[in-house]
């Protein structure tokens, strides 16, 4: 990977993580109609981070450890 490519990938990862963090904020809503839609969006963003950055983002990994991003934000579990 060239330096430019590396910088572009880093920028992409940074934007995706920022979007993820923003969506996690949205997932703190108590609106029962909007919350599952925000979770749906979060799932998509987490999958994109996995795909584009090869970085696990979301639930703790299979070994039971927390993800590099600390797992899901509070308020995301349960309904």
């Amino acid at each position: 990977m060239s330096g430019d490519q590396g910088r572009a990938a880093a920028d992409e990862a940074r934007v995706l993580r920022r979007v993820r963090d923003d969506v996690r904020q949205l997932c703190r809503t108590s609106d029962s109609l909007m919350l599952p839609q925000y979770r749906h969006l979060l799932g998509r963003v987490e999958a994109l981070i996995e795909i584009a950055c090869h970085e696990h983002s979301g639930r703790p990994d299979a070994q039971g450890g927390a993800s590099p991003d600390g797992g899901r934000a509070s308020g995301e579990e349960g309904s």
Partner: peptide, 15 residues
């Protein structure tokens, strides 16, 4: 959303 909305109104919830 236009399927989820009426179903939410009818009582369907996440989970």
């Amino acid at each position: 959303y236009l399927h989820a909305l009426p179903w939410h109104m009818s009582g369907l919830r996440a989970g």
